[in-house]
C-alpha cells in the first residue's frame, strides 16, 4: 500500500477539560473523522475559519497532540509510537504565527543552529546546515545580526531556516504571515515556494489569506473538524458561494470575475490572477468597441452580455 508523507485515517481529536478532581467537565471535538493523504513534494494549502480544526490538525503532524481516535502516520510512522517521536519531529518541522515566540538565539546563525544542535548533529555539520538554510531563505547577509533587529518577515524566514536546518522532509506552517506587512508576507510565501520547488520539501500552509493559496498544488478546506473541500486552487475558488458559507473568501480578482459573471458577462470559472482576468476581459471590450464602430447596437452581442 502506498502512503503519502502525511496520512490521517478516521482521525478524531477531543479537547477535554477536567476539574480539580480530574472529572471530565467538557469535551470539545476539534477533529471529527478526518481522512487525508498528502503526497510527498506537494504544496498543500489548508483553509478553514477560526475553530475549524486546522491548527489542531497541524499539531497532530509532529506529535504535539496525539489522536483521541484514529491514526496519523508521518512517512509511515505512527505518531502514537513513542519510539518514533523524534524521527517524526525531524521529518515534519513546524513554523508558527508569531516569530517573536520562536526565536531564541542572540545571533541569527546561533538561532538557526539550535535545532540541529539539539538533535546531536556534529559541529561541522551544524555549520554546514546553518549556511545552507540561511542561503535557502535568503538571509545569509543577516547571519551575524541580532534577531530582534529584524523585521517580522525576516524573523519568520529565520524561523523557517531554523526548521530547515533540521533537514525535514515536510514543513507545516500555521499562519506564518498573519503578523506581517505586505512585503514580509510576499517574502515568506516566495521562500516557502522555493523550498518546495528546489528542495522538494512538502509544504502544508495554513492561512487566512486567499491570495497565498493560488499557487498551491492542492487546497483543502476544513470546517467543524471535517474535510469539506479538496481540489486545485482553481476548482476550490470556482465555488465562491460555498467558500463564503464556510466563513472564507476568494481573492479580489476571483470575486470581481464572479460578480461580473453573475451579471451575465461571459468569463471562465475560477479566475485566479490579474493576468487571467484581463486576458478574459480585453476581447470582450474589443468586440463591444468594434460593434459600436460598425453601428451594431450592443444588444447584438447577447452571447457575451446578457442584458438583464
Amino acid at each position: 500500500m502506498s502512503m503519502g508523507i502525511i496520512k490521517a485515517s478516521k482521525l478524531i481529536f477531543d479537547y477535554i477539560r477536567r476539574d480539580e478532581e480530574d472529572r471530565i467537565e467538557e469535551v470539545n471535538r476539534a477533529i471529527d473523522g478526518l481522512d487525508l493523504d498528502i503526497r510527498e513534494g506537494d504544496f498543500v494549502a489548508v483553509l478553514g475559519h477560526n475553530g475549524s480544526g486546522k491548527s489542531t490538525f497541524a499539531k497532530q503532524i509532529n506529535g504535539i497532540l496525539l489522536p483521541t481516535e484514529g491514526t496519523v502516520w508521518i512517512s509511515g510512522m505512527k505518531t502514537t509510537d513513542d519510539s518514533h517521536i523524534w524521527d517524526i519531529r525531524k521529518t515534519a518541522g513546524m513554523v508558527f504565527q508569531n516569530p517573536d515566540n520562536q526565536i531564541i538565539g542572540n545571533v541569527v546563525e546561533e538561532d538557526v543552529g539550535f535545532g540541529p544542535e539539539n538533535l546531536g548533529v556534529p559541529t561541522d555539520e551544524i555549520w554546514r546546515r546553518v549556511e545552507e538554510s540561511l542561503q535557502a531563505v535568503g538571509m545569509t547577509a543577516f547571519r551575524m545580526k541580532s534577531p530582534n533587529k529584524l523585521s517580522g518577515g525576516q524573523k519568520q524566514r529565520v524561523a523557517i531556516a531554523g526548521v530547515m536546518a533540521m533537514k525535514p522532509r515536510c514543513i507545516v506552517l500555521d499562519e506564518p504571515t498573519a503578523m506581517l506587512d505586505p512585503n514580509g508576507r510576499k517574502d515568506v510565501i516566495r521562500t516557502i515556494h522555493e523550498l518546495n520547488k528546489k528542495e522538494g520539501i512538502t509544504v502544508l500552509l495554513i492561512t487566512h489569506y486567499m491570495e497565498e493559496v493560488i499557487e498551491a498544488d492542492r487546497v483543502i478546506v476544513m470546517d467543524d473538524g471535517h474535510l469539506v473541500m479538496d481540489g486545485t486552487p482553481r476548482e476550490i475558488f470556482s465555488r465562491v458561494k460555498e467558500l463564503k458559507e464556510y466563513r472564507l473568501d476568494v481573492p479580489q480578482v476571483t470575486e470581481l470575475a464572479y460578480e461580473l459573471k453573475k451579471e451575465g458577462v461571459d468569463l471562465p470559472d475560477g479566475i485566479l490572477t490579474i493576468e487571467e482576468l484581463t486576458e478574459a476581459l480585453v476581447p470582450l471590450f474589443r468586440e463591444q468597441q468594434a460593434d459600436r464602430e460598425n453601428g451594431i447596437p450592443t444588444g447584438g452581442q447577447r452571447e457575451h452580455v446578457n442584458q438583464g
Partner: peptide, 9 residues
C-alpha cells in the same frame, strides 16, 4: 483583524 478568518474580519 490580524489572525481572524475572512468572515470574522
Amino acid at each position: 483583524t490580524a489572525g481572524l478568518d475572512p468572515r470574522g474580519r
